[in-house]
Every structure is written in C-alpha cells, then in structure tokens.
Amino acid sequence: MSKLLIIKTGVSNKSVVKKCGDCDFRIARYAGVTMEDVIVASVYENIIPSSIEGVSSIIITGSPSMVTDSEPWSIATSRWLKSIVQKQIPILGICFGHQLLAQTLGGKVDYHELGEESGKVEIQLTNEGRRDPLLGILPSNFSAYVSHSQTVTKLPKNARVLAKNNFESNHAVSFGNKVWGVQFHPEYPDAPLCESINENSYGGILLRRFLQLAG
C-alpha cells in the first residue's frame, strides 16, 4: 500500500502535544489514516528522506523555526523538495511548510508587516480557490486556526492564490500541478481535549480531500 510521507519540521507546543499528540499524529488522525500508513521524516533532526519509493503523497508540517533562519536542516529540506516537485507527487505544505515551498520554488518569505496572526480566523476563497480541486471542497468562507509571524512576501512564478483574509493575502496557494501550500493549520484540534475528531471540520475535510486526490 502506498504511504503518506510527513516531512516533520519541528515539534508542536508541549501543551498541545500532551493533550492531542504531535503534529504528525494529528495530521494522520484528521486525514483518516493510521500511523502504520505513514512515514515520518524528522528533518529538523537532520533526517532527510533517502527514498520516496512507495510514497503516494507528501505533507510538510509547521514548525517553531522561521524560514528566514536558514538553518542547515531547512536548507537541506529545501534542496530535497526542489528535486521532488518534479516527480508529480501531490505535496501539501502547512504554515512553515507552505512558506518553505514558496521560497524553494522562487518566492520570498519574511516577517509579516502587521506582526503575528494567531487563533481562530475567518478565511475566504478566491475565484481560483473555488475552482481548485483541493481548496474548492471548502465553503467560500470558512474558519481555521493560525499561528504565524512570517509570510510569503513574494509568490513564485505561476503560483495562484486560492484563499486569503484581511491580514494574510496568501492563506492558500497552488504552486503548480499537485503542489499546494496553506498558511493556516488544518491539523489543529477542534476539541480542547482532543477526545473526538469532528469529521466535518474544515481541516479534516481538506486533509482527506488531499489524500483522495493523491489516489
């Protein structure tokens, strides 16, 4: 069976991990797959995937690190991604992962001129987003959790903005065929104690749709 490769770029907040598990566990849970169907590459610990054999899709997590810090593991991951995007494997970047994809593909990342965006926010799909095979599954206006102080300040060539709000102009972007980035966190827990997963949450819907598109 083909597997989901999670590129883990850091560890979640300790309180969230204690209640709900780390980001890789939550991504798998929201996407509706077991950890047996997932390969986790902890790139923040300098573990770069040596092979993508048997991998059908890739998700890049958020991170407490900043893209502009240019840490050695982040640079190595960017080089790896640059070679992988040519292979037509569906890729989804989340927060840091979204920004790293943008920079890898020719865009720019820096601190947001308005500071930090955090908490539950309202986001709107663009016309392109409504037609997109991934983001188009969401309603035109939806809520999501965010936590970021950096942003994509310049999009790569041919990138398409799929969602935005008054604070963040690039909340979801298509970077090309089968490659997406979202600034918001679809894996963030809806329930405070994570005792249940709402299958109708927008984050869960998005992650399951991503895997569906990946086949």
Results as ranks from 00 to 15, higher is better:
residue 136 G to W: 01
residue 126 T to D: 00
residue 142 F to E: 09
residue 118 S to K: 14
residue 156 P to T: 03
residue 112 H to L: 03
residue 162 L to V: 06
residue 148 H to T: 15
residue 146 V to G: 06
residue 174 S to C: 09
residue 135 L to D: 03
residue 160 R to N: 11
residue 166 N to E: 15
residue 134 L to K: 02
residue 119 G to Q: 04
residue 137 I to C: 15
residue 173 V to H: 01
residue 172 A to T: 03
residue 182 V to L: 00
residue 134 L to H: 03
residue 121 V to K: 12
residue 146 V to L: 15
residue 181 G to P: 04
residue 126 T to G: 00
residue 146 V to I: 08
residue 113 E to L: 10
residue 157 K to I: 14
residue 143 S to D: 09
residue 131 R to K: 15
residue 108 K to Y: 11
residue 108 K to C: 10
residue 178 K to V: 02
residue 180 W to H: 01
residue 185 H to I: 01
residue 154 K to A: 14
residue 118 S to G: 10
residue 113 E to K: 10
residue 148 H to Y: 07
residue 166 N to A: 13
residue 181 G to Y: 12
residue 162 L to K: 00
residue 181 G to D: 11
residue 107 G to C: 04
residue 165 N to Q: 01
residue 109 V to Y: 07
residue 147 S to K: 12
residue 177 N to D: 15
residue 173 V to T: 09
residue 150 Q to F: 00
residue 165 N to G: 03
residue 129 G to K: 12
residue 118 S to F: 09
residue 148 H to W: 02
residue 143 S to E: 13
residue 133 P to F: 05
residue 168 E to C: 15
residue 112 H to G: 09
residue 164 K to F: 06
residue 118 S to W: 05
residue 148 H to E: 04
residue 163 A to P: 05
residue 150 Q to W: 12
residue 142 F to N: 11
residue 185 H to V: 02
residue 175 F to I: 02
residue 157 K to D: 13
residue 116 E to K: 12
residue 162 L to T: 07
residue 134 L to Y: 06
residue 114 L to W: 14
residue 168 E to P: 10
residue 113 E to Y: 13
residue 123 I to A: 06
residue 145 Y to H: 12
residue 168 E to S: 15
residue 158 N to D: 15
residue 155 L to D: 02
residue 133 P to H: 03
residue 145 Y to M: 11
residue 170 N to V: 14
residue 178 K to N: 07
residue 117 E to T: 06
residue 169 S to H: 06
residue 178 K to A: 13
residue 107 G to P: 02
residue 155 L to N: 01
residue 156 P to W: 01
residue 161 V to I: 07
residue 142 F to W: 02
residue 180 W to G: 01
residue 130 R to D: 09
residue 176 G to V: 07
residue 172 A to Y: 02
residue 152 V to F: 04
residue 163 A to F: 04
residue 108 K to A: 14
residue 161 V to W: 07
residue 107 G to L: 05
residue 133 P to D: 10
residue 177 N to W: 11
residue 165 N to C: 07
residue 133 P to V: 04
residue 151 T to Y: 10
residue 152 V to Q: 06
residue 172 A to I: 09
